[in-house]
Computed example of a mutant assay.
Amino acid sequence: MRGCVTKIERASSRCGVIEEPIVTAKGYQLADPAHGTHKNRAEHATYVRTLDEAAVLVERGFSLRMGAKGKPPSLIAPKSLRIVRDGETALV
């Protein structure tokens, strides 16, 4: 059994910032790849409450909205994300 997700991070963050998943009042915001070029629209957003739920969707191809202080949030493709679980260390 795999451990609980402790964080989801961007494999290569923008210069000088540490990006983290954005949490809204509805939860973590993801974009369903089934909506193609329209996946970034608010009406197609998928929200989950936990990082574990977000990780499941990222593993299924969903993009995750991430941001950093002073930078506008953006959708990050699953291939550019790293999921860190209990007992694992993040590779940098």
Rank of each mutant, 00 (worst) to 15 (best):
P72N: 06
Y47Q: 08
C4M: 15
R14N: 02
M1Y: 06
Y28H: 10
S13K: 05
V48H: 04
T50H: 02
E19C: 05
T37I: 02
T24R: 11
C4H: 15
V92Y: 05
M1E: 13
I76L: 05
V92M: 01
R60P: 05
I18S: 10
A11L: 12
H35R: 00
V92P: 07
A42G: 02
G67R: 00
P21A: 05
K7S: 15
L57D: 05
G36C: 03
G16Q: 09
T24K: 06
Y47G: 04
E53H: 04
D86E: 15
I18C: 10
P33S: 07
M1C: 04
H38T: 00
E59L: 13
S74H: 11
N40H: 07
A25S: 13
E20G: 00
M1L: 12
T50L: 03
I8Q: 11
G16K: 07
A90L: 13
R65A: 10
L75P: 01
T6G: 06
E88S: 12
R2N: 14
A77H: 14
V17N: 01
T89S: 11
S80M: 11
G3L: 11
E59K: 13
T46F: 03
V17Q: 01
K69I: 07
T46P: 00
A45C: 09
G67Y: 10
I76C: 02
H38K: 06
K7G: 09
L57A: 08
M66S: 03
P73Y: 02
K71E: 00
L30H: 10
P33Q: 08
E53I: 00
V17K: 08
V58P: 12
S12P: 01
G27L: 00
E43A: 07
N40I: 01
E43M: 02
T37W: 06
A42V: 03
E9P: 01
A77F: 12
P21C: 05
G16H: 07
I22V: 14
S80T: 03
S80K: 14
K39A: 04
A31Q: 11
S74D: 05
R14V: 09
G27R: 01
R60H: 12
K39D: 06
S13M: 03
K39H: 01
E19M: 01
C4R: 15
G36A: 05
Q29I: 10
L75R: 02
V84S: 13
A11Y: 07
V58M: 12
R2P: 15
T6R: 15
L81T: 10
E53M: 08
A25D: 13
M66Q: 02
A45N: 12
L91I: 11
V5E: 11
K71F: 06
K79F: 10
L75S: 04
R82D: 10
P21R: 00
S74P: 06
E59Y: 09
S74F: 04
A68L: 04
R49E: 14
V84H: 12
V48K: 03
D52L: 06
V92F: 06
R85V: 12
V84L: 15
R60A: 14
L81V: 09
L81I: 08
P21E: 00
R65G: 02
V5I: 14
I22L: 08
